[in-house]
Amino acid sequence: MMTTSRYRGRRQHLWLGLLLVLSGSGALADDDDGEKRIRPLNHAAWRQECSACHLAYPPQLLPAVSWRALMNGLGHHFGTDASLDPQQQADILRFLETNAGPSRGSKSGSPPLRITETRWFIHEHSEELPADSWQRPGVKSAANCIACHTAADRGDYSEHTLRLPR
């Protein structure tokens, strides 16, 4: 891409990406600069409650059926108690369902409960990663997106903001 047309080109890609997200055919806008963004959403309770222990994962990354299963099992949320009062739980679930992504295949075949189980996630993280990446003290877990995707809280998963901590 020529430098002079780069900005306009990127904008076009972003719009295309946004269309893809809106049409439900892909959660991530992806252009040929390795630019990956998730349309930022805002919902106060979702942001506050879901970001207490981990990044508030974008609703687009799992289908509605997965969010329903997750939100109905918060008392045992991957081994921890993440229970909410029923009103707040219902409010957040409505938001997640409204903005949920397309159905995603998982290795087990059933609806994925972890984003990291989706074939999409596995594919996106299959290249150029040192073998110990997930175990590094600064990362600790694949749940910790922001350890490497330093602007993940703003929906920006582009390579410009990517760094692998020690």
Binding site: C53, H54, L55, T80, A143
Partner: peptide, 8 residues
């Protein structure tokens, strides 16, 4: 602190 499971 750092969350023992998620690393946050």
């Amino acid at each position: 602190g750092q969350h023992a499971a998620t690393g946050k």
